[in-house]
Computed example of a mutant assay.
Amino acid sequence: MHRFSVLLLALALLAMPACLWASADGEGSSPAMALQRLQEGNARFQEGRSIHPNRDTARRLVTSTLGQKPFATVLACSDSRVPVEIVFDQGIGDLFVIKVAGNVADTDEIGSMEYGVDHLGTPVLVVLGHTHCGAVTAVTTGAEVHGAIAQLVDNIIPALETTRHAHPDLEGGALIDAVIEANVWQAIEDILKRSPAIAARVAQGKTAVVGAIYDIASGAVRFLGEHPNQAALLAAAPTASHAGGDGHAADTQEHAAAPHQNEATPAASAAHAQNAESGAHAEAKDAHGTATAPEAKSGGFGFFSFLLFVAALIGVVILLDKTILRPEDN
């Protein structure tokens, strides 16, 4: 009986890292929990009290042996002033990040997001725009671009046209700011239209796709919420059976037609965006209001826990050696 108890203890200790790893990260998290974790992390960063979690030797060991289990996928701009893990005060293996100029959602970016959302199962996908975005500014001002950049930033043109149609009086910085936000909505629209896998998870409530704007001066992330026309986008989203074959050609044609589709309901889009922004401010206040609470949710399999596990494992080995392998010594 004593030997059987020791064996059970050994198995429990061996399973401990995997259990801690699964419970601390994306597996089993809800979209609301994942969003709260991002909000709380950004609140810490903005207020200068980051805890820099999951950046030690133990975290590298766990993620390299047990694999990655991020709790959020983030599409962000390549701008060096937008360090996503730092902005949300997260560490190794916490976020699955895709960075591209202008945070546009084209074929490569959508495929990468599908890996994070559908394969790794992250419960939230954030499209993160930011203030003073160079790509959006170039498109809005008609600046000359060279090389392949023109093909990259053409994804932003629909956002510019929608904004000009809805707000013909906007100019200068105000116009650029409005296009930055419209570009976030455009990216989400492109994702839901062109990714049956992501659209299906959103429809099932497994993943939330939300927009956000990062202020590079203040460090604050303003969450915009879900796309104002999400229900209609999901209803029109292609099914997985339509994604094969010449799906890429269909995506290209659909993208080319996007400006006309966006112009159809500019006023409605603007109104929905304002409502989403109002909700986002209330959400941000909640995040700041709970910022001083204990940070138990940011945990992970830390270095101290790892040392305890190693010590316990050594003890089990000694017990096994004495009680099972060499019982005659007792």
Rank of each mutant, 00 (worst) to 15 (best):
V84C: 13
V84D: 12
I86V: 15
I86F: 11
V87N: 06
F88K: 08
F88T: 09
F88A: 12
Q90N: 15
G91H: 10
D94I: 13
L95T: 14
L95H: 10
L95M: 09
F96I: 09
V97F: 05
I98C: 14
K99A: 13
K99H: 12
K99I: 01
V100P: 11
A101Q: 09
G102H: 04
G102A: 08
A105H: 03
D106A: 12
T107V: 15
E109S: 11
E109I: 01
I110Q: 11
S112C: 09
M113N: 08
E114L: 05
Y115F: 15
Y115P: 13
Y115I: 15
D118V: 14
D118I: 10
D118H: 15
H119L: 14
L120E: 01
G121K: 12
V124G: 09
L125I: 03
L125Y: 02
V126H: 00
V126Q: 00
V127T: 04
G129L: 00
G129D: 02
H130C: 14
T131C: 03
H132Q: 13
H132A: 15
H132V: 07
C133I: 04
G134K: 07
A135W: 06
V136H: 03
V136Y: 02
T137K: 15
A138F: 01
T141Y: 03
T141M: 09
A143H: 11
V145W: 00
H146S: 13
H146T: 07
H146E: 08
G147K: 02
A148M: 11
A148R: 04
A148W: 01
I149R: 01
I149W: 02
Q151S: 15
Q151V: 05
Q151C: 06
V153S: 05
D154E: 15
N155S: 14
N155H: 15
I156R: 08
I156L: 14
I157K: 14
I157N: 12
A159K: 11
A159P: 08
L160Y: 04
L160D: 05
L160C: 11
T162C: 12
T163E: 08
R164S: 11
H165S: 10
H167Y: 05
H167G: 02
P168W: 01
L170F: 05
L170K: 06
E171L: 07
G172Q: 03
G172V: 04
G173I: 01
A174P: 02
A174L: 06
D177I: 00
D177S: 08
A178T: 07
A178N: 09
V179R: 03
V179L: 02
V179M: 03
V179H: 02
A182R: 02
N183D: 14
V184R: 02
W185T: 12
